[in-house]
Structure formats: C-alpha cells, structure tokens
Nucleic acid binder design. Structure first.
Lengths: 154, 154
DNA sequence: AAAAACTGTCTGTCTTGCATACAATTCGCG
DNA sequence: CGCGAATTGTATGCAAGACAGACAGTTTTT
C-alpha cells in the first residue's frame, strides 16, 4: 500500500525528470561524446589526427573521387568546415584534389600513398579505440546502441 | 552446412567491422552528438546560451556554492575551460563568485536573480529540446539509452 | 618543516562550427 | 532556348571549447 504510493511518487518524478540534469538524454550524450572524444585523442596523439580528419580520410578511401559537398552531407558538416579539414589533410600530403569529369563545379578527392599509409595506421588505432569503447557492452548491446544512435542522426 | 559457412563469414566480417565506417560505435556517437548539438543551438538562439553554459547554470543551481573544480569534475571539463565559461556567465550577470568558508583556495558560485530567470527560461527550452530528442524513442528505450551512455562516461 | 597536491588564474594554440560573401557552373522551369 | 535558382568550392572572420603550460596562494601529506 505505502509501497504503491512510493511508486507513484517515483513515476511522477520520472515524468518531470526530477528537475535534475541527470534525467536529460542530451546531457548524457554530451558526456559520452566527451569521454569518447578524449579517449580518441589520447589514442591518436602520435598520429596527430582528429576524429573528423580520420572520418574524412576513411570516407575518401571508401568513396574514391568523392566531392567535398558529399563529405559534408555524410558527416553533417558545413562546406566551409569540410574545406578547412581537407586543407589540413592536403597540407600534410594525405589527400589530393583533382578535376571532376562532367561537373566542373566539383572536384574529386583521393588519398595519396602517404594518406593510404596514414589511414592504415589510423584504422588500427580506431579498432583499439573501439575495443576500449565496446569493452563495456555485449555485442547485442553494441548493436542496440548503434540502432538508437542512428535514429538520432539519420 | 553451407549456411554455417556463411554464418562464419558473416561473423568474421562483424568482427572486422566490414572495414566500413558505419560499424564504428564512436562514429555514430559523433554524428548523434552533432545532431543534438545543432538542434540545441537552434532551440537556444534567442537565449544565446550554449549546452555547456546551460549545464553550468543548471549545476550551480542544483549545488549552490559549488566550486569551479567541482563543476569541472562533474561535467568533465578542464579547469581552464570551466573558468572561460564561468567568466562569460559572470560577464552577463548570471553568476557571482564569492569567498569560500574554510578553504581559501576555493570560491563559491551562485546564481544571481538574472541567472535564475535565465535558467528558468533555459529549462523550458531544454524540455522542448528533449521532447524533440525523445520523440523517436519509447520511454523504455530512453531509459535504455541513458543506461548505455552512462556506462561510457561514468 | 618540507614536499606534494589542489585551486584559481592567465596565456596561447588548435580545431571545429557557422555566417557571410563571391565566382563559376549547372539545373529547372516557363 | 534562356534566365533565375540552386550547387560547389573558396575565402574570411568570429565564437566556443579543449588543452597545455605556467604561476601564486593555500591546504594536505609525509
């Protein structure tokens, strides 16, 4: 009897999120992202690559001759932001810009051999980083988490 | 028989993440965080507050006379970063720094009445933002997602 | 009492995100 | 077909945040 009263109170609190910041989904996404970001950075200090830079390298490798605008769409980044990242990667000799056949507004992007080598190293580090991240989940939970996250960004 | 062979192949691919960026948990966390960040920013254009700033206001309100170092620990931010944020909030008259009783290294932080008002508005916007975020999940899934995310950042 | 740790502060650098603007190019619709 | 609209890359400037390194005052540990 009094236990059901307690339950009701608890539910009421849940509905109102207790006013506490811990009930905010966005708050936990921020913190989780921060933790992942920090560990990623640690893993990549030697390679001197950021998350975004690796993502762009990876994407160019998966889709040779992709254009900057497409990268922006896939990674949900501004065109100007993509350009800044590509500039950095180009300055380090990882990617090259080339002419596009057909549409003269676009440019093709492809990895140099240096870029290929960097990506190969990066892939290994990403797997190490992922192992750290996945170590706290079962394979089922990993799939579940990805599914939930996809619903947010897709 | 041949189906088991296929299964093995499929598992092998799973283990290697198919080489695809879509199999990377961190990748989805980044994208999800980006989407949430963007929507948050849209929701708060009028209030001109960022995620971090709201989090800090919220935290100071929840824990009056908290010190900067404690904020940093709870929100996983560098001391220098916390200071930058508190400086901005102080410049806008939302928070005040005060002396700490006992430990003279620390300072206490508390909201001004202006800060209280801003936080009240912010809370409403956060709920609106959260509703957008939660709209794609059942209550069970929300709880599940929070649980999974907590394991990453706790 | 000396060493180590903590706290706030300051400075500077790097990355990212976004707004704005511009020119060249391509596309869509009348 | 032709002209306005949309796309693409580029450039610039600004704000926020992360972090490293340094410093001084204070507290805790040994």
């Amino acid at each position: 009897m009094h236990s059901s009263a307690r339950k009701i109170a608890a539910n009421a609190e849940d509905d109102a999120d207790i006013g506490g910041i811990d009930g905010i989904v966005g708050f936990h996404i921020r913190l989780a992202h921060g933790a992942v970001y920090r560990h990623f950075t640690e893993t990549f200090v030697d390679l001197e690559l950021t998350q975004k830079q690796v993502s762009v390298l990876w994407l160019i490798d998966e889709h040779p001759d992709i254009a900057q605008a497409d990268i922006g769409r896939r990674l949900q980044m501004d065109r100007a932001t993509v350009m800044a990242i590509v500039n950095r990667l180009q300055k380090r000799g990882f990617v090259e810009r080339g002419a596009s056949t057909g549409d003269r507004r676009r440019q093709t992007l492809h990895l140099t051999s240096t870029g290929q080598a960097a990506l190969a190293q990066a892939r290994a580090s990403v797997l190490e980083h992922e192992a750290w991240l996945k170590s706290r989940f079962t394979p089922r939970e990993v799939a579940l988490l990805i599914d939930l996250l996809k619903r947010i960004h897709e």
